[in-house]
Design a protein around this nucleic acid. Structure first.
Length: 455
RNA sequence: GGCGACGUAGCCAAGCGGCCUAAGGCGGGGGUUUGCAAAACCUCUAUUCGGCGGUUCGAAUCCGCCCGUCGCCUCCA
């Protein structure tokens, strides 16, 4: 299997350095509802795990929650609520949203506030070795002392210095140094440390958590493309300086960012996001996943409700093929779908080429229908369809309907129409159909009877 | 200004030197089925890959220039 590695800027053969494969994925800062960009990223890395497992490779996936930082503190103050309650609420909403997308939880979901000791220990190592220094109760990382700083993002300290966007800070030796530990300020949460009360900086948590749950060296580190700099660059610097193990992560895998119509990036700070919760109100998790997988994970995707609707229709086709009546059950001709699986694996082995993998699945659906009309036994093909779609985390479950208020009335009308049809009173029957249509109910007559769904 | 990504049918989107007169999905045309519909199924739907040059026996795929869009450059999945 080949994977694109941001560190080397090319596709490389994936060779695991540990069993299970150790994968760390950057999770959200929990001050707001998770949006589709978070969903996309999480789905992608879950897919990486699930595909590897399909290929017989065990994977341990860790995804963190950043539950203390400036944004959280500011937002809580704005809302007049306790920062911890805010963060707890959004950890819950993240887990719920991902569950709604049928994402399997990571093996471990550590949160920063429960990892303070390992973080302090790691900072201590950096201070002891001279890679970091204390100043005014804060601790900073000496970027200029780290010789290969910038190797992930292609940025050097020199070039950063030329730019004036760096906040002047009298405490820092150099403007490009970044905080490992932030000294306490009134009104902020704080923990005791050798450098006085304070809280972790943004980047150190991931280095500490990856180390604690996966070890000094990991196979894969993932996250959104927007994290390459400074977050991941700084993680590399911290981890490698602290442990001496190089590289910290063998593969750096980054997903492309989601944009909104107008081609602007979907982000919390721009306020132009669609939450996962809202998306799930009008789309099935299968359709959302299909929509994500229809473009390659490293390309930018643009959110467009029309495309989600198109994906919904496409899912319907797969569902239809999976549930097609096997009229050739007793036939000696069995449709064999092995060749599809081979194409699927070739596509996925090529840096998770999900668009191509999906194309093979749609080909499989067509072949199932063809075999069905030829009277062949399609059981194996349908099993294969469910198997491959399962790797992509899709269930092909029928969209939920029924069980809601008004169902009795609908069933009544359908029965009434059935009666009229039997008497060949099509005028009455069509009238009832129109009535249901105006209620937002679409019906279809099949050999098994009449079914309905909300439009 | 620096670094990087991208521009393929009405829309989404693979392909990255010959199998491409370009996969797959949505939409649209035609057909099968149906009391009529809907749904479903079958089938057709880019001689062409932002523009102009170049390299090559051969280019959507490599190189150069131009046009357009986006990301990162210490908030971000």
């Amino acid at each position: 299997m080949q994977l694109y590695n941001t560190l080397t800027r090319q596709k490389e053969d994936f060779k695991q350095i540990s069993d299970p494969v150790r994968m760390y994925v950057c999770g959200p800062t929990t001050y707001d509802e998770p949006h589709l960009g978070h969903g996309l990223s999480t789905v992608i890395f879950e897919l990486l795990q699930s595909y590897m497992e399909y290929r017989g490779i065990n994977v341990k996936r860790v995804q963190n929650f950043t539950d203390v930082d400036d944004k959280i503190i500011d937002r809580a103050a704005e809302m007049g609520i306790d920062w911890f309650d805010l963060t707890q609420e959004h950890i819950n909403s993240f887990l719920e949203a991902m569950d709604g997308l049928n994402v399997q939880p990571a093996d471990v979901h550590p949160r920063v506030t429960e990892e303070i000791d390992p973080i302090i220990e790691l900072i201590g190592k950096l201070v002891d070795s001279g890679a970091a220094y204390e100043a005014g109760g804060s601790v900073y990382f000496r970027v200029r002392r780290d010789e290969d700083y910038g190797k992930l993002s292609g940025r050097t300290a020199d070039r950063m210095d030329e730019l004036a966007r760096l906040e002047p800070d009298l405490l820092k030796e150099n403007p490009e140094d970044f905080a490992l530990w932030k000294a306490w300020k009134p009104g902020e949460p704080a923990w005791e440390s050798p450098w006085g009360p304070g809280r972790p900086g943004w980047h150190i948590e991931c280095s500490a958590m990856a180390r604690r749950y996966l070890g000094d060296q990991i196979d894969i580190h993932g996250g959104g493309l927007d994290l390459v700099f400074p977050h991941h660059e700084n993680e590399v610097a911290q981890s490698e300086s602290a442990t001496g193990v190089v590289p910290f992560a063998r593969f750096w895998v980054h997903n492309g960012l989601l944009r909104m119509a107008g081609d602007e990036k979907m982000s919390k700070s721009l306020g132009n996001f669609v939450t996962v919760r809202d998306a799930l109100k009008s789309h099935t998790p299968d359709a959302i996943r299909l929509w994500i997988f229809q473009s390659h994970y490293r390309s930018p995707a643009t959110y467009d409700a029309e495309n989600l609707i198109a994906a919904e229709r496409a899912v319907r086709r797969l569902r239809q093929a999976a549930n097609a009546v096997n009229t050739g059950e007793d036939s000696g001709d069995r449709y064999d779908a092995e060749h599809i699986k081979q194409r699927f694996v070739v596509a996925m082995d090529d840096d998770l080429n999900t668009p191509r993998a999906l194309a093979t699945i749609f080909d499989l659906a067509r072949e199932i229908f063809t075999a069905q009309s030829d009277g062949s036994n399609i059981a194996d093909g349908q099993a294969m369809l469910r198997e491959l779609v399962g790797v992509l985390g899709m269930t092909l479950d029928e969209p939920r309907h029924g069980g809601e208020a008004g169902d009795g009335k609908i069933d009544e009308l359908i029965a009434e129409r059935q009666n009229a049809r039997q008497k060949r009173d099509f005028e009455t029957a069509d009238g009832i159909r129109d009535q249901l249509m105006s209620m937002g109910i679409e019906i279809s007559d099949t050999t098994q009877g009449t079914t309905w769904r909300r439009t």
